[in-house]
Structure formats: structure tokens, C-alpha cells
Design a binder for these strands. Sequence first.
RNA 1: GGGCGGGUAGCUCAGCGGUAGAGCGCCGGCCUUACAAGCCGGAUGUCGCAGGUUCAAACCCUGUCCCGCCUACCA
Length: 952
Amino acid sequence: MMASSGGGSDLDKAYEPREVEERWYAFWENEGVFRATDDSADTRPCYVVPLPPPNVTGSLHMGHAMMATLEDVLVRFERMRGKNTLWQPGIDHAGIATQTVVERQLAREGKTRHDLGREAFVERVWQWKAESGGQIMRQMRVLGASPDWTRTKFTMDPDMSAAVIEAFVRLYEEGLIYRASRLINWCPECRTALSDLEVESDEGQSGELFEFAYQVDGSNEEIVVATTRPETMLGDTAVAVHPEDVRYTHLHGKMLVHPFASRKVPIITDAILVDPKFGTGAVKVTPAHDFNDFATGKRHDLAEINIFNLDGTVNAEGGPFEGLDRKRARAAVKKALDELGLVRGTKPHTLTLPRCQRSGGVVEPMISTQWFCKMKGMADAAIRAASDGRTQIVPESWGKTYNHFLESIQDWCISRQLWWGHQIPAWHGPNGEIKVARTRPPECGEGWSQDPDVLDTWFSSALWPFSTLGWPCETRGAAALKKFYPASDLETGYDILFFWVARMMMFGIHFMKEVPFRRVLLHGMVVDETGEKMSKVKGNVIDPLDLVYGAKPKAIAEHASPNMPEHEALTKFKRSYPSIAADIEKGIGFPAYGTDAVRFTLATYPPSNKRIALAPKRIEGYRHFANKIWNAARLCLGHIALVDRAELTGQAPSVKGFYNQWILAELGKSIAIAKGGLSEFRIDEAANEAYRFFWNEFCDWYLEITKPILRAQQQQESGAGAPASTPEAAEVRLTMAHVLETSLRLLHPLMPFITEELWQRIPKPYSRQSSIAFGPFPSAADGVGDERVTGEMAVIKAVVGAARTIRSEHEVEPKADVPLSFRTGSDVARGLLAEHLPAIALLSRGKGLGIDNIGGAREAGTAVSVVPTPHGSIEILVGLKGLVTKDKEISRVEREIKRIEKELIILNKKMAKKDFLERAPKEVIDESIARRAQLAGARARLEEAKQLASEL
RNA sequence: GGGCGGGUAGCUCAGCGGUAGAGCGCCGGCCUUACAAGCCGGAUGUCGCAGGUUCAAACCCUGUCCCGCCUACCA
């Protein structure tokens, strides 16, 4: 360990996150920092955020990291503000996903779930859950997330399951849940029904429009239909034409011969289904396998012939095609039609395939008996709650999408043909009776069996904001439910606005008679640097823990594209993240950025961005920031260790020194901005402001400008031995201690680890608690100051900047002190300069010589720069005689002149072309004029610089 | 088809009516005892394109072209 020599602190020279992070996370958990209390005696206001429960099968991805960061920032902010803060964690049982994982595991053992039987299979899933489920909760700790872990829930916990059963039964009793046979989305791969939301459309697939003829019964006429799914003709029970389509008027009411079935198919007229301009104007109608056709069938009372088994193969209705899967059946039907001479051609056609969100299999519309939940009434209530502001949606623009979804909502198919999930509390009797009850009714004995289906995973998620708090149990959960419902904020990615947020709104209002949360905060999707969605297929997945702990290219490749050769995976990866391609090639991969840097980076993207393109290189900048904080604290510690804690009141000290007043004023402004950002879900604004304040004001100006005040003090101490201290230095130390402590508190929600580590080491008011996480968050009282001070400081900064620029442009030796003098016509400015001459001289490495009125002669060898101020302009004169090594200004201006001359030559050539002149001469002439003016200006500057150089 | 978002410096992004900004990268100079993961200075943009409103537009309006996402039953 390298102790710093100057500061006298025992901090390492650079910040090393890993050890610090593990230590403080353990501390927080031991201290109970994250705990919320439902004690009714606690009168603090509450702040409640339900954690979107990740899937039990999941492991951390960037989306989780984003969510965890944003929510943790909010939660820590409010906790520091003294609120009784509950961030409710949990895990979702994820019906289909989890069942698939375990079934796959069984498949490797050569077994299916049917070999085990339902009970043993479910047991097996529980076993899997115990061993490898919920890894994500451990990973979230690495990110510094601060939910109340003691309240963690799993959607299949007994109490959670009881809530699900209760909700189902109540809705059934209210007539809002019903059982019906209708066309639903069926995934032949998962062998279960799906809700509309679980079906994704795969657009732009190239397919064909296949045309074939039906013979008119008892005539040699035919009618040609077009279809993208020829195999479904096995289930055709009508052909529809538009009633006003004159091509087919004479066929109305006629029957057609089905080429493979004994039945006759009627020609019907339907203005809703048929667009006479599309295809042949005649549509084959398959009510059992198409949503439009189903509706048409209902209108015309057509037979619904299901031609598929549950696994997607053709059933007995398919006659000779029985047993073929859909793809083969299609080819076979086409071939058979061809043999009968009924094919009338094909046309290329792009189509949209419905796919199962989980398996990716093509979804088949099937007629099936399922449980449904009526949505209309609940949806209306949810719309009203958002539009009257009981729940505020942020950003507002999502309100439209939310409304549109709810306005056009269909009844929700809630039953799934799975074994893993909440089994539906309904019992079927021997004669088709159905009883719904919380527990098996005693009268349902012999011959009765429970409905084998389970509920859609999202059914239990929809109850999350109250089921986690003990609903419906009146005794055990009453206190928590009373205290923590409704939640304050529901923060999540917009991708589950429909799946989850809207459904929580509906169920929350229905069961609790009050909205489940006051605000819905939606953030965008984390995508790769080029804007592409992260996926293993694209090979652009980043494991957040790799960013935190660092990762070599090999590990990066494995996480980005599992099971792909490393080289290939890295090639893909570099394409997705150009900013770090070089680091990958060099074998560096990701350095260990540390949690705070990763969090801070994520926090600097406006959450409202729909796409959040992660540039890993950007994290590096914020890792440097962490290091900056670390080192600033090292410097400060050397001085503020002398501060008596009793002097720290927890409020901004009242100070006389200008620079102290100024930094306190800046601090106050930054606190206000940061607070505003955190309150309005503009966390990026808070992060940027805190960054700017700490680095660009506190470090770059305050710490530099106060050094001499403190340094003089130190010398005196070491020399005389007596701890004499000037009042000025004491005031600086006090201010510095306050600003540092307040800055750490300001940054804590964003960078919890480094701030805790440093905060524990610095002097602070006695009133502070055991952890920075307890706050308080900085308030207006922490930063006071007025515009006058900041305005004056702005002048000082500008003057120093001008002097520095002159030094740099004329390449003055870095160590040399330059003579500085000023001229101004303003008394105010003159006063200001006189007062701050030492600071200006210090920061511009100059000797402040004096302040003159404008009019005095300029000495030879002096460069001038004019700074405008609100009080009139100031001329800064820098004596350069004998100090200039080589003059950059001259060569710079010379280069500029050459460039402009070149451009002029090109322009002249253009103007010389006659045809061009006739077409569009104006722009060229204008440009030429502008360039000539530039040239003249540059030449004048060159003269000036040369003049100056000659004087030196 | 409908809806939403985006196109600003080489890259990732702020700004959304009043003299173009940040980080990273780039150029030049500094190992100045907090920090080279740093300090100081600098360059870089017809703010997607075309119209319009305005004293003033990256910002408002209209049209248009790209890109992305969501949503819809066109066989």
C-alpha cells in the first residue's frame, strides 16, 4: 500500500472498487439499512417501489442492470430524505420458461415430464429452483441494489399462491372469469394456449400466395381462391365472396366440391372478410384456424373443423394427410391439388408469421376450451385512473400507448396447459359440472378432478403490489398492506407496460379500490452501441458483471455468443461495440470498472430514451470520475482532519471568505438541480450536475484556489511547531469539510460504494447516523450563496482562462511566471481584479503587476486578450518578453491561411467554369466572399503575431 | 395500415426559440508533492433534407427521406 506523502491520509493512490464494494454491502445488510418497517408507530412518510420480479430462470443482463440502477437511485434518494422506504423484491416463477428449462434437463436424461408424472415433475422444478433459481438476486447485490431482502417473495410461495387463488375465485364469482371454447393462440411446441401478448409477429417473411380452384357442384365452373396456407383448406367450410362483386353474383348460394373431403362447401357473401380487390376476390374460410375466418364462421353459422392435433400434426379430419406436420401437410396438399389439376398458380407474397414469444414456434390458431378473464370494465377503470392523474405516467408520451392498448383490449386467456404454475382452483365433475372454490369442495369426491391447467404467469404478477404485502390475509398482512399500498413509483422497462403494468393497474383498482402506484416510470431498452437489440443470436450481449469485475476477451465472447468459436464471437462483438474494438484486439477486454462507474454510466442516459445505446468506453470516463472523487478526498483529508466535528453543524457554515462563499453557492445550485432531476425521473440531469459540480467546480477551482491558503498554514505549523492557524485557513478547512461531506451525500444514490467508503473516513457532524445511506440527502441549507459571488467568480475564471490561453498559444515555458497587468474602464472590474489578484496570479502562473485604466500605452512584447464582463470589458496583458520558446500562434495562423487559400483556389476554378456560373453562381460567389474575408482576418492576425514575436 | 421515438462534433449522447454543448476520441504542452485513471490549452459541426412561422429556429409548423420500436385480421 502506497501511502500518499503529502496528504497525510492512509488512502491508496487509486480507487480499487472490488474490496470496498463487498465490504460495504455486507455492512449495509448487517445494519439493516434496506429495511422498511410496517410498525404503525412509525410516522415517517413511506416510499414504496415494487421490484419488477425477474424470472427465476434468469441471470443478470444489461436491462436488469439498468432497472436496478434507476430504482436503486430513487430508493436511496428517498431513504436519505428520511422516508420509510420499501423496495419490495421478489422472483417470478415464470411458468413456460421454467418448465422448458427443466424439461430440457429431463430430455438430456432421455425422459419427458410424462415419465415422471405431474407431482414428481413439479417436485423436480422446485428442486431446480432451490439449486439454481434466483441467481439474479445475488447478482443484484453486486450492483449495490438496496431492496428489503427480508421481504423477498416468490410468486409460488404459499401466501402468494393463496392470493392468486383468492383473486381467481373472486373474479369467477363476480362473473369476470369464465370458461369458453373459442379460437385461441396455440403453441404446438409448448403445447399450451397463449395470450395475445405472448404472440410476437415476425414480419417481412417471404412466402407465397397460392391459388387453387374449387369446382362448383353440378357445373363445370370453378372459383379460384388465394391462400398463404394451403394446408388449412382441409378445414375449409366455405368460400366467401364480396356481395357486390359482379364476377361472382351468379354463384351466390352455390355449393363447391371439396377435393379431399366428402362435404360440400357453400359459397357465401361477406363484405367484412372479403376485399374484392385482393387476390381473386374469393376467400377460402377456415373457421377453426384463422381469426378472421372464425368470426366469419360465427356470422354465417359455419362448421368449425379442427384439422390439427395439439402437436401441430394433421388429425383424422385431414383424411389422407393425417399425421403430417404443418409444413409437410402443406407440401402434400399442394401436390395433391396439382395432381387433380386444381392449381392456378403462385405469387410471391410477404407475410407476417405469429411466433411464440418463448419457443419461437409458429403459433397456430386453434379452437379450444380455456379460461378467460373479462377485461373491458377493468380496462376502462385503468384508463380513467391514468387520465385523471391518480396514476401519473412518466414520460407522459407513453400514456397514449397505454390507452390504446386498454381501449382495444380483448379478453385474456389465462389458462395454460402446463404443470408449473398455479393450478386453477376448479373441479370438474363426472357429468361436466364445474365448481370453483378456494379449496377442494367436500362434495367433489369420487369422480371429480381438479382442472389440470395452470394460470398465466402474469396473472400472479398482476397482483404483485398487494399480494406481496399480505393480501388478502387480514390479520398477518394488514399492517404492511395498510402502510405500503399503494406504491409510490413503479419503475420498469417499457417492454412490459402491457404485460405487467397495465394488468397491475386493472387488478389493483379492482381488488384494492385504489390504484397500485402513484407514478409509472418507464425507461428504454438497453441496446448495443450500434442501436441493435442485445441477443445471443446477434452476439452482442454484455454481462453486467463483466463490466463490474472486468473480463478478458475470452469471457466476453462466451457471454456474448455461447457455444461459438471465440474468434467468430469476438468479430461479431467488435462490430457491435466499435468503441472498444481496439481493447478487445489488444486482449484487454473490459477493465474492472467497478459497480459505481457502471451505475453512474447507466444513470447518465436519459431514462426516457427509447433506445439506450451502451458504449462501454463511456464507463471508463466515469471510472475516472470515481478515481477523481477518491483523490480529491485524499487531498481534503489531509487538511480537514484538523476540523473539530463539533464545528460541523450539518448546515453550510457561515463564511466570510470569497471562495468559500462561492463554492457554497455553487453547491447549493447543484443540489437544487440534482434534487429536481431525481424527483422528476431525470436521473441523468442529477448525475451530470453532480459530476460537473464535483469535478469542474470543486476540484478544478476550489481545491486549487485554496491550496495556498492551506499550504501557508502547513509550513507555518511544521516550522514553528505550534499549531497556529490563520482564521482564513480554518474557514477553508471547515468549508472544505462541509462541501466534501455534502458532495458525497449528493453522489451516494448514484455511487453508493465509494461514497460510503470515503464518508466513513471524513469528519462529519455528530448528528450523522452509522451509514451515509441514512442521509440526510443534501438540502438547500447545505449550500447558500448569492448571484453576486458566482458572477464575480465567473469573471475571475474568464480572466485566468484568457491568461492561460495566451501562455499556451505562445508556448511560454510552463514553469515561467509571466508579468500580468490589466486595463479596464470599469471601477467594479478594477475592484474585483485588485481583490483577486493573488488568485489570478496563482492560477495563471503569473505575477500580478497592476491595474490600469484603459488608455495607458501597451508595452512592447505584451500579448493582449479582451474579456467581456457584465461590468465592462477587461484587457488582460501578458508580458512575454524572453519567455517564448516557439510561437504556436504564428504557425497556427499560417496553417489556417494555407487552408483558406487552397479552398479559394478550388472556388476560383469552380467560378471559371462557364456552365457552372450560369447554373448556380450565387452560393459559390457568397462563399468566395466569405473566404476572402476570413483570409484577410487571418493575415491581420498573422501580422499581429509576427509583430509580437519581433518585440520579444 | 396505424402509433411512437430517433437522425446534433469521428463515436455515444445532452440541449428543444435567443451567440452550438458533455464524455470518450483527436491535436499541442505539462510527471506542477490529491489524482498521468491527472492538469492546462486547442481544433472539430451547412444540428437528415426542403419549405414555412418569427426580429430571431437545432429547437415551433408543414412536407419529405432514412433508422428503430410497438401495434393491426388483409386471405
